[in-house]
Amino acid sequence: MEKLTIAGKSFSSRLFLGTGKFRSNELMEQAIRTSGSEMVTVAMKRIDLENPEDDMLRHITHESIQLLPNTSGVRDAEEAVFAAQMAREAFGTNWLKLEIHPDPRYLLPDSIETLKATEKLVKLGFVVLPYCQADPVLCKRLEEAGAATVMPLGAPIGTNRGLRTKDFLQIIIEQAGVPVVVDAGIGSPSHAAEAMELGASAVLVNTAIAIAADPVRMANAFRQAVEAGREAYEAGLGSVSANFEANASSPLTAFLQ
């Protein structure tokens, strides 16, 4: 399997993990280890001064893991820049999953603010991985603005509905000059494999693992699915539907005989 390179850094695993919704930090840590993931997202929250709690960071800090702070909760580009600066300070990394979703119901990304924020953050020296709509033109614009990857959604976040945007993802993958990470909507290992077979560079999975009956075994299943899908892509997929025969009758090409 080819290594994945983002902003000059190389990754052996093409499975990125989100850390939300796990029943416990211990379970999350085990799931991450089992998944083999080398890129793990982390959110930020205000410290509750009265109720000190377990520090989740220690469960995900590991030399092989690139922390990917997200900007979840911000509603526009200005807030995103602030959140990014806080994240860089708190976690000591300039990597950033940029997500701007002003809509609290479906958490759909705001394309216009995302592009604006990408432009600003790149200038401020961040490695920006924007979560975005599966919009091929937007993805080119983000790339031109200096995004290190694009992270188009497969389906609304948390829905586990799979690659509802497949036709657009295919165009994005074909056109992109940066890695394409399919984010959001991947609900099962088969979805992850499908994205990898399409030629996605990586997938980001959270809910599907976190809420599984056994998250650790599900993390293992995703690891295998992502590897299988990527291997299939690199090996050159055979046709599954069409079975072309060499054609003896030649109505269109008789003039060439």
Binding site: A43, L49, D55, M56, N70, M86, A90
Partner: peptide, 25 residues
């Protein structure tokens, strides 16, 4: 930034935000 904390004075009414890591996707 942390290296500026010791030189940063607090004014009455200052709005201070302290954040830390949280779980999230």
């Amino acid at each position: 930034p942390r290296e500026e904390w010791s030189a940063t004075g607090l004014q009455a009414g200052a709005q201070v935000v302290v954040i830390k890591a949280a779980c999230g996707g």
